[in-house]
């Protein structure tokens, strides 16, 4: 269902010369949760965001916010806030002037400029020229600009880029709060550990195609093989029993086996049946990173094949 603040991408296709950046993309970003937007470089994440913002024109298909094209919004900053590029603010302007120029165009009161400067931790640097800013501060300024119109929809392209650890915690908390307030939050990132901590839902692209659109838990479950770590006093006997059951045990430490493709239930039952004492039995849950790399191993355009193999 199209809600007043969902982002809807429908059959979106966009070519840049010979490169197909978006290839029949269809997905919806729902409000009230943080949606992680993943995919290797060149997968089409930024392209999709630019098309949603009406900056690039699709060759076919549509992209709408709340059922309307972005250009149809009268004062769009009050509906959609976006961070595309940390370098976008002109270096010779002060942070406050940059935000003020934006605010004026959409009739956002100047008091709101000071609010977002405060919120993004830039209040003390408000009158400094942007060219004196670190990458992290520019990123904060870009996020302040996205928040300017207090929009119900936010699209952030790599917001954690260049942020210090404190900044990363800030952006993580901010995104969760915004989603908790019922806003639509779409965040692209290459930082899997960070995405695992913030996103509830994932949209994964590869070479312009949709590879996955599902909850974080479902994604990890679907794109990882079960794996069990087991410690026993009789490693050799357990290993031969596992092999007989068609499972492969690999050493993972002293007296410790890692069993690929097995669940704790299988291994525990098998050990009990043969009277092998277990000292430890753990479900070795895959991380988002492992699940993601497994999915995109074939799709990664710029990753050497062997690098991907090592990582998975």
């Amino acid at each position: 269902m199209i809600t007043a603040t969902s982002i809807d991408v429908h059959e979106l296709t966009k070519d840049y010369g010979a490169v197909r950046a978006a290839d029949g993309l269809t997905f919806r970003v729902e409000p009230g949760r943080v949606t992680g937007f993943l995919g290797p470089n060149g997968a089409g994440k930024s392209t999709t965001m630019r098309i949603v913002l009406g900056l690039d024109r699709p060759d076919s298909g549509t992209a709408t916010v709340g059922g309307r094209p972005y250009r149809a919004y009268d004062e769009p900053l009050r509906h959609v806030g976006a961070l595309l590029d940390a370098g976008a603010a002109h270096g010779a302007r002060t942070a406050r002037d940059h935000l003020l120029c934006l605010a004026l165009s959409n009739r956002v009161p100047a008091s709101r400029v000071d609010e977002v400067l405060e919120e993004s931790g830039l209040a003390s640097a408000a009158k400094r020229r942007v060219r004196t800013f670190s990458l992290g501060m520019r990123q904060r300024l870009g996020i302040a600009a996205a928040l300017l119109g207090d929009p119900p929809v936010l699209m952030l392209d790599e917001p954690a880029n260049g942020l210090d650890p404190e900044g990363i915690i800030w952006i993580r908390t901010l995104m969760k709060r915004l989603a908790g307030e019922g806003r639509t939050v779409l965040v692209s990132s290459h930082l899997m550990a960070e995405t695992a901590l913030t996103a509830d839902h994932l949209v994964v692209l590869g070479r312009g195609r949709l590879l996955a659109d599902m909850s974080m838990d479902a994604f990890i479950k679907e794109h990882s093989r079960p794996r069990v770590r087991v410690r026993t006093t009789e490693p050799q006997r357990l290993r031969s029993e596992l092999t007989r059951a068609g499972l492969t045990a690999e050493p993972d430490g002293p007296d410790l086996w890692a069993v690929d493709g097995a669940t704790p239930e299988e291994v525990g039952t098998l050990a009990a049946r043969h009277g092998i004492p277990l000292l430890e039995l753990a479900d070795d849950k895959a991380s988002l990173e492992q699940a993601y790399l497994r999915l995109t191993a074939d799709e990664a355009e710029y990753t050497a094949a062997n690098t991907a193999k090592q990582e998975v």
Binding site: R50, L53, G54, L55, Y70, R71, Y73, P76, L77, V80, A82, L84, D85, G87, A88, A89, H90, G91, L102, S105, N106, A145
Partner: peptide, 18 residues
Amino acid sequence: GHEYTGGGIRVWLAAVPR
């Protein structure tokens, strides 16, 4: 020309898409 430095035009056109 200043509008285009560093991809800035995207910020301005997102604010005024017409």
